[in-house]
Structures are given as C-alpha cells and as structure tokens.
Design a binder for these strands. Structure first.
Length: 427
RNA sequence: GGAGGGGUGGCAGAGUGGUCGAAUGCGGCGGUCUUGAAAACCGUUGGGCUUCACGGUCCCGGGGGUUCGAAUCCCUCCCCCUCCGCCA
C-alpha cells in the first residue's frame, strides 16, 4: 500500500517505479480521483459545519423556548441534510476507487534491484561450496521411492496430486531438519520461536499482500478462514495494528509450520517429486525493524538462512531477483538456490525479502521513538530459513550413496537418535 | 452450540441524547523544592483529514440506522469475559 501524499509529491517517481515492474502509469488516474475526493470532502466539511452550528443553536433555542427560532433552524438543517447523502456517496465512491487501485499495486523496487522481465535477469550475488558431481546421481523421488519411505501414490489416493507421504527415516529426517533450523535461528540468531495460527482471516492476508489479488493461490476453509501459504502471514501479522516502542526493535520471529498453496497456474511444472506440493513445511523468519534498519536486517536475515546450508554443507548460490521476478510486497528479494545433483541445477530453497513499509501500511503497524510523539510505519522482512521439504530433497540428492542409501549430514546427528544412514528397512 | 456481561485516550476507569474529544487515577513530559534523587506541589499530555495560519471536520471495536443533535437509543458484524453443554 502506498502513501497518497507520496504520490502527490512524487508522481513521476511513483510511475517510474511501477514501470520498472511492468505496471502502466497510475499516478495521473489516482491523483485525478484524489482531487475529486478532496473536492467532495471540502463540500461535505462545509455542510457538516453548518449543520453542527445549527444543531447547537437548536439546543439553545429549545432551552429558551423560542419556538419560531427552533422551527426555522430545524428547516435549515433539514435543507442541508437533503444534500449531504449525494456528496457522501460521491466521496465514498472516489475513495473506494483509490483504495481499490492502491491495494492492487505491487511494492516499488529498491534502486539497486536489477531491471528485468523475469528470472533470466536475476543476478548472482555470491556462491558457496562446490556443486557435488556424482556418477549417475538419482533424483530424490527415485531414491525415496526405492527406500520405500516416500509414497506419492498413497498420498494421491487420499489427497490427489501434489501431496506426499513420508515414512520412517525420511519422516524423521524432515523433523530433524526442522528442529535443527529452529535451534540455529533461536540459539544463534536471536529469533523467537512461535507456534502461530495456520488459519487466518482476510485482514491478515490483506496485510501481507496475498489479498485481494492472489486469492486463487490460496486454500479457503468453508468458513471465513484461509490456510496460510507461508508462516510469513502469521508471523508478520503478530504486530498488526500495534504501535511498537522503537527501542524494542528489531523483533525477530521464527516458526516451523506447514504451508498450503493451491499452485493454480503451475500445472505441468515440477509435477514429479517434492519440489512443488500443495502442502509443505517451512521454517520461516520474520523481522520487524525501524525504517532505517531494514536494509542491514535484510543482509543479516539472508546470512541466517545461508548459514543453515553451510552447516549442512550444501552448495548454493545467492541471487538478487530482478524487478520482474519479485513478489508483490517486496522491494528487494534475495533467493538462495541449492545445488541438486539429481537435477544437476540450482533450485530455490529460500527467498528473503525486504518489504519496506508496504505491509506495515496495510497492517497499520507503527513504531515510536522514546520521547517522540510522531509514529512511523515499521519495516517488515520475511525469509525462508529454510524450506524444509526442499532441504530434505537437497540432502537426499547430495548425500546419496551408490546403493541408494542416504548419509545423514553431521549437523543433523544430534537430531536423528543415532541413525547415521537412511536405508531400506530390513526386518 | 446455549445464556448472560463487556469493548471509551499509553494503561486503568467514569460518562441523564444537547458546550463530551470526553471526568478521575496512573504513566509520560515541563517546572517548583533539593547538593542530587525520591516524595510533595503546580502545569501539561490522543489521533486522522484539511488549512500558510486561524479554524473546520471526522474518530469512544467495525459497518449501518433513528434524531435538529448519538460515546449515550436501534440493527448487524467482530473481539473479550463469566456460566452451561460438547470436546483434542
């Protein structure tokens, strides 16, 4: 969401930012509506003023028992009141139009975001580790099915496509990965572990930017709730409608939750395996910062996510997304891509975004410096730290042995109860 | 799910339909006193929009209505609390 005052003062800059994201100019239309709305506001203001004055005088007239004056004033108010509904309706119409336009516009990209139409224009920021070269590397679904611990058919029978059933060692590995990530982020990086709601209302999704534009990507309950597509929604909305003390910022939250996505429009993409599912689990990172701290926090958050991959000894590269590949609410995004030997390519495993005050405006979350009266909108950031399912995939493909068993990375040993290798159950 | 009771300024808590944007207390800020602090005392202390300013206007959970006039009456939705029922 944008500040109408910013558009009034910097219409060209606003349109230029939109243009960077392939959105046609909107400032002219918005400011035209704004001007009309303000015109009606002024008219309405004047009518209210006259009505209030007359009403006050009526009280006095009545107290004095001045019947004539009472009736004269009453007629005057009646006259004013016949005109008010049209002005009110017009004003509301214009304001609604402005709100509808604004709520559908994506955040403006930061200046240092590369220009481009899609992921082809993303730029590599850094690279870590050597992509593992394996003889006849298998993909994770072949490995998992051979182990008898990854069952897409059973999942499909109860739930349809894009679901998976993990069993035995792989199910445990998923839990170990999540615990390891949570321990790292809470223990080393100061994030507060949360167990947030998975069902949320419209307002929350509007706050983080999934609504009103992306309803088709979400699952809705039979009631008024939606399943979260990411814990970003729950964790960011913790501070909705709050005024925070600036000294207590940044706030850092993390949570391991399932995420639910309809994957509308992804038909045919990544149909095999665990890369793209309707339900997957993810450890999410969210930071709430003062406005001047968000850029530094963005770098820090990305490093927190990268650290997990380093501890797991998984090769990755970090990309800064181009204007065409960024999400709706982001002003700048880093994607972390892990090397998958089975696919012989880098695949996204984390996405860390600085949303600036875009979500804060939608949630009405502000902060106040000590002793100050003035409040300002906070900045919000979110990142995967990491996608647990895709981390499982990465471990399987990178740690596979020729016999189809999977070695457990050292970092996960404390979480696997002595299991050092995942192999076909022998009974 | 049933029956009741509530949602008011940073917090607590008043408010017969007509100078109520709102008493009072706490907290905050400024001052007096003090070597300094505390205590005490005095003063001050919501926000949005609009205006160069004066001012005007809107906001007492959200939305709608009644009225010349609504924090106050009515409808509706949301949230919280108590009791009952059901339940992981």
């Amino acid at each position: 969401m944008f500040d109408i005052k910013f558009i009034r003062d910097h219409g060209e800059k606003f349109d230029a930012g939109l243009a960077r994201r392939g959105v046609p100019p909107k400032a002219g239309e918005i400011l035209g509506l704004d001007e009309e709305a303000r015109k009606y506001t002024a008219v309405l203001n004047d009518m209210q003023s006259r009505r209030n004055a007359a009403s006050k005088a009526i009280g006095a007239a009545k107290a004095k028992g001045d019947e004539d004056e009472f009736n004269r004033l009453k007629a005057e108010v009646d006259q004013i009141k016949t005109q008010m509904p049209t002005a009110e309706a017009e004003q509301k119409k214009k304001l609604d139009q402005i709100r509808d336009i604004l709520s559908g516009l994506p955040n403006l990209p930061a200046d240092d975001v590369p220009q481009g139409e899609d992921e082809a224009a993303n730029e590599e920021v850094r690279k870590w580790g050597e992509p593992r070269k394996l003889n006849s590397a298998k993909e994770h679904f072949d490995l998992g099915e051979a182990l008898g611990q990854m069952d897409f058919e059973a999942a499909a029978r109860m739930s349809g496509s894009r679901f998976v059933l993990l069993k035995g060692g792989l199910a445990r590995l998923e839990r170990a990965i999540a615990n390891f990530m949570l321990d790292t982020h809470t223990g080393e990086f100061g994030y507060t572990e949360c167990q947030p709601p998975l069902l949320v209302r419209d307002d929350a999704l509007y706050g983080t930017g999934q609504l009103p534009k992306f309803a088709e990507d979400l699952f809705k309950s039979t009631g008024d709730h939606w399943l979260i597509p990411t814990a970003e929604v729950s964790l960011t909305n913790i501070v909705r409608e709050d005024i925070l003390a600036e000294e207590e910022l940044p706030l850092r939250f993390t949570a391991w939750t399932p995420c639910f996505r309809s994957e509308a429009g992804a038909a045919g993409r990544d149909t095999r395996g665990m890369i793209r599912l309707h339900q997957f689990s993810k450890v999410e990172l969210v930071s709430i910062t003062a406005p001047d701290q968000s850029n530094a926090e963005h770098e820090r958050m990305t490093e927190c996510a990268e650290t997990v991959l380093q501890k797991l000894d998984l090769a990755y590269r970090t990309m800064v997304l181009s204007t065409g590949d960024m999400g709706f609410s982001a002003r700048k995004t880093y994607d972390i891509e892990v090397w998958l030997p089975g696919q012989a390519q880098y695949r996204e495993i984390s996405s860390c975004s600085n949303c600036g005050d875009f979500q804060a405006r939608r949630m009405n979350t502000r902060c106040r410096a000590k002793g100050e009266k003035q409040t300002t909108f906070v900045h919000t950031l979110n990142g995967s730290g990491l996608a647990v399912g895709r981390t499982l995939v990465a471990i399987m493909e990178n740690y596979q042995n020729e016999d189809g068993s999977i070695a457990v990375p050292d970092a996960l040993n404390p979480y696997m109860g002595g299991v050092e290798k995942i192999e076909t159950a022998v009974d």
